[in-house]
Design a protein around this nucleic acid. Sequence first.
DNA 1: GTATGCTTTCGGC
DNA 2: TTACGGCCGAAAGCATAC
Length: 369
Amino acid sequence: MMERVVGHLDLDYFYAQVEEVENPSIKGRPVLVCVFSGRTEESGVVSTANYRARELGVGSGMPIVVAKKKLQKAEPVIIKMEHEKYEMISERIMRRVEERVDILEQTGIDEAFFDLTASTGGDYDDARKKAEGLKDAILASEHLTCSIGIGRSKAVAKLASDSAKPGGLLIVRPDATGTFLDETPVNKLYGVGPKTAGALKEIDVETIGQLSHANEDDLASRFGKKFSAYLLAASRGLDDALVLAGLEPAQFSRMVTLKRDTRSPEEALEQLSQGILDVQQRLSLSGKSFRTLSAIGILTDLSSHTKSKTFETPVADISAIRDSALDLFTGLSASVQKDFRRVGIRVSGLTKTENQLHLSEFTPSAAGP
DNA sequence: GTATGCTTTCGGC
DNA sequence: TTACGGCCGAAAGCATAC
């Protein structure tokens, strides 16, 4: 059986790097790409920080005012996030990458798995050359750096690209997989969250190497047969998840920060009305229906709460979304103790709609005022 | 007892 | 001292099915 050649590519501190390329004079200074909620002049958070900002203790998710305070002597550059711009650049890059690999599976705006098994015939020296070619192509066309990891499985490739950040290339040959994984904490394995990691710690398994030597029956008694078998395989870099082209999103959602805190479902829904239209349009443009609708509420204490409803058969029409969303927000509002600060809706359980509206049938005049 | 599906929450970027 | 987005998929918790 030929060894697989799986890669993971990650664009370095993507949004902030795009801004550096657009305006090279800011390089060297801390750069923050921020989301402003609109509630007050400064309210919002950091979405992406460049490495200079990270050295100074500022990273994604941090409130803008906190970040500014930390960087007040470091001449920070604060930039408003422009999602469409990054989306366009990402798409151009992914199209180029697609031409140079056998299979591309995009997993985010700035990252993707790829497969080179067929074109390299399992030759890792060839894979290294192709990965260098990818990095060169992205640098030449967009002036952006990326990190690439290559290994025998998705999990190995992802861990390799993580440890190559920023700007590196790490090839983990199949026979070096054990050495590479052995010291890595178990919670880095796909499928192992805090709960599973905690249960593993009880049997003195804290690293992937220790997991690979764990007793199978011991694992099975705690996690069941199927999950245990997966854990053992994954610990040896033998997780068999395939790189799949043309993967479609499993859910769409929209969130807004309310103009003022409220627990009125009607008020929440009203301020979410554009978001509901957006979700409906995305469904329509992608030819999808959904089975599950969720109402999401972030309260004044920033705690997160949801209520969902699953339909027997797939739904796509806007009035069904609005009616059910009102029901869900009414229930949500009644079940929480504080006002909403932010609200959102999410559709999941997506399926292809029978009578789908194709992109080619969509004309601006049909949707315009 | 184990697998599966749905709901809710978590966590990364 | 506090401060605080908008997405996504993963993980966990629970009920039910096999």
